Structures are given as structure tokens and as C-alpha cells.
Simulated scan of single mutants.
Amino acid sequence: MTHLTERRDTALGPRTTLLLALTCAVAVGNVYFPQAIVPLIAAGLHVPPGSAALAVTATQVGYTAGMFLLVPLGDRLRHRSLLVVLLALTGPALLLAGCAPNLPVLVVASALVGLTTVAAQVVGPLAVALVGAERRGAVIGTLLSGSIGGMLLARAFSGALGEWLGWRVPYLAAAALTLLLAAVAARAVPVVAPPPRQPYPALLAGALRLLRTEPELRRSCCYQATVFAGFSAVWTCLALLLSGPVYGAGAQVVGLLALVGGATMCATPLAGRLVDRRGPDPVNLGCLLAVLAAAAVLAAGALGGVPGLSALVLGTLLLDVAMQCGAVANQARVYALRPDARSRLGTAYMTCAYLGGSAGSWLGVRVYGWAGWPGVCGLVAVLAALALVRHLAGAGRG
């Protein structure tokens, strides 16, 4: 066992870890960078901004489909081969989007980009298979830090590049970077032998089966879905608060506020090392308490002015750190369950998380219309309290 652990740690050295984190950043960035250039797309293709936003929606729909349809293949194929193929397919889809002559072609290309840019969900099981259990949390934290960086920096990069050179250039630059990563990954990423092959329909059904049979998977899904629902409710309604009568600010203020979350890139590796030393449960407990604290701080944002804005900055930072660090603990727990089914475990976990986020956005808007910003903060607190009650009721119960 010791020899196996040493061999795994050698396979996943600092350079390989950095490459995989960069792959996560680029793959996740491909989902988010179009959000910053919707007005430029609208002007370039001579369509209303609402219609241009279909490119963003198509990317997100494709991404959800890719998680369900393609990520489980990691339990059937070699991870490196699947990773390289996904990157190699994303590159041409980005090229097609960048060269799209009209909106329908762009929407189709965007859906293809979303479908194939699920490399980050393949990287997780790959990295866990290459590292010993005592380093699993630290590696997951590093990979999640890359994903966060990609999400934040992609928006800023594409917005600046699009304003300077036009909306097509961010797509073309992303295509070049993605294809370069595919070439590097084909040579630099270690090979992990896949588990015994299973029929593809069985892989697709496997995620639902694992949710039914693995209590610890259900527990992690519960924590992440509730916290991500509160996170999504806050960020969906934040623009309504800032653009309303209390602040009267523009959408750019929301973008600047989102950059505060960049501090989370430093927090997730630390959370990962804490998971390795203490296990995921203490980290989950601390993160759920932090979400409750964030809800209280965010409620002061309704005051307006400098005190209110300061509360929003501190509260969103605390909420971001709590949500992402909790995700490190949840993923470490999930990937430790079944080495032969890590891709299907990841599919089940991420699907539940995204469903929670979608429900949180929908519910948050309705609560905001009924009870305003304090109501949204109350919703965050209730969701965190539900997860906390589940945690305190007994970590061993499914």
C-alpha cells in the first residue's frame, strides 16, 4: 500500500497538478466568458441583447447535458484519453462560434462548446486516482482554485479583449488555448487504467443508483445543494438590489463585487489540507456556520450607502469562501466512496448541486419580490440551517 501511494504521488507532481488546475480553469472559463460579451455579440450580429443571451443559455444547457452524458464515460475509458478528446472537440466548437455568421449558428456552436467543455469534471476523478488518500483534499482544493480562477478571470479577459478587438476574438483565443492544452495533456498527463467496462446505459443509470445506495453521497449532495441554492439566490438578487432605489448602481458594480470572490482561490487549498488532517466533517460544520454568519452580515446590505456596501462586500466574500471550501470537503468525501465509480459519483454530486443552484435562483427572485433583500438573506439562513440540522443529527445517517 505504501509503495502504491508513493507511486501515485510521483505521478501527480507539482507540474501535473498545475497543468490539471489550468485545464479546469480553461474548461470552466469557456462556460462563463460569453456572459461578458453579450452586448458585443448583439451589436456585431445586429440582434437584440436578449436574443444574443441565447448563446450563454445554450452553453449552460450544453454543459448540463455534457455532465450527464459524457462525464460518466470516465468510469469506462482512460481518463487521459477522454480528457484529450473533450479538449480537442471543444476547440473546433469554439472556432465555429468565433466564425459564426449569424445567431442560429452561434447558438448551436455554443451548445457544442458547453457539451464538450466538461473537462473539469473528468480531471477530478483523474487526479484522485493519481494521489494517495492523505493528499486528496489538498489536490481537490487546488483544482477547485483553478476552476474559480477560470470563472472569474475569463469574464474580465473576454470583456477587455472583446472591447478591444471585437466579440469574435475571445472565442478564437479560447479555441487556441484549449487546443494547446489538448496537445500538452496528451503528452504530460499520466495514464490511469480504467475500471472494467460497463455498458453505456448502465453508466448513465449508475449515478441515480449511487444516490440511492450511498448515504454519504446523499449527505454531500444535501450540503452542497442547499448552500449553492443560497449562493445562487444572493447573486441573482444582488443585481436587483444594487440597481434599485437603495443604491442606484449599474451592472458593472456587480461585476466588481464578484471579483472579491477571487480570495476564495487562496482559501480552497487551505481547506483541502484541513480536510486531509481532520476529515471533511469539521470543514462542513465550519462552512455551514460561516454561511449563517454571511446571511446575517448580508442583511445589513439593505441599509445602503457605505455601511451597506461594506456589508455586501464582506458578506459575499464570506459566503463565497464557505460555499467553495464546503465543496472541497464534499468532493473529498464523495470521491473516497467508490474508486471504480468516481465519474458517476461526480455526475450525481454535480447534478444535485446545479439543481440546487437553479432552484435557489428561482426561489430567490420570488422571495425578493415578496420580502426584499432581507427576505433573501433569511432564505440563505433557512437553507444553511436545514443543512446544519442534517449535519448535527448524525453524520453517519443517509
Rank of each mutant, 00 (worst) to 15 (best):
L94C: 09
L204Y: 02
V56K: 06
F157W: 08
W167G: 02
C266A: 15
N284I: 13
V184S: 00
V192I: 11
W235Y: 15
A302S: 15
Q198F: 06
V26L: 14
A251I: 08
T347W: 09
T213M: 03
P104R: 01
A233Q: 06
P245K: 09
P49M: 05
L386H: 04
A133Q: 08
W164K: 02
L303R: 15
R342G: 14
R8H: 14
A395H: 11
A183T: 04
L179A: 09
A207Y: 03
V122I: 04
L40Y: 08
I41L: 13
G13Y: 07
G91C: 06
R135I: 12
E134P: 02
L172W: 05
L82F: 00
V131P: 10
L285P: 03
T347L: 11
L19V: 01
V275D: 14
A311G: 15
L4W: 05
S147A: 14
A251G: 05
V192M: 11
R219M: 05
A52Q: 13
F68W: 10
A293T: 10
L73N: 01
V26P: 03
L54H: 11
L96H: 04
A267R: 02
T213Y: 02
R80A: 00
L270Q: 10
T178C: 10
P72A: 01
V123Q: 00
A176M: 04
D9W: 03
L82M: 00
L345Q: 12
F157N: 07
A111K: 00
P125M: 04
L77Y: 10
P374D: 15
A381Y: 15
A21Q: 01
P215D: 10
T5G: 11
F231V: 01
Y223C: 09
P39T: 07
L54W: 07
A329N: 10
V260E: 13
V189A: 08
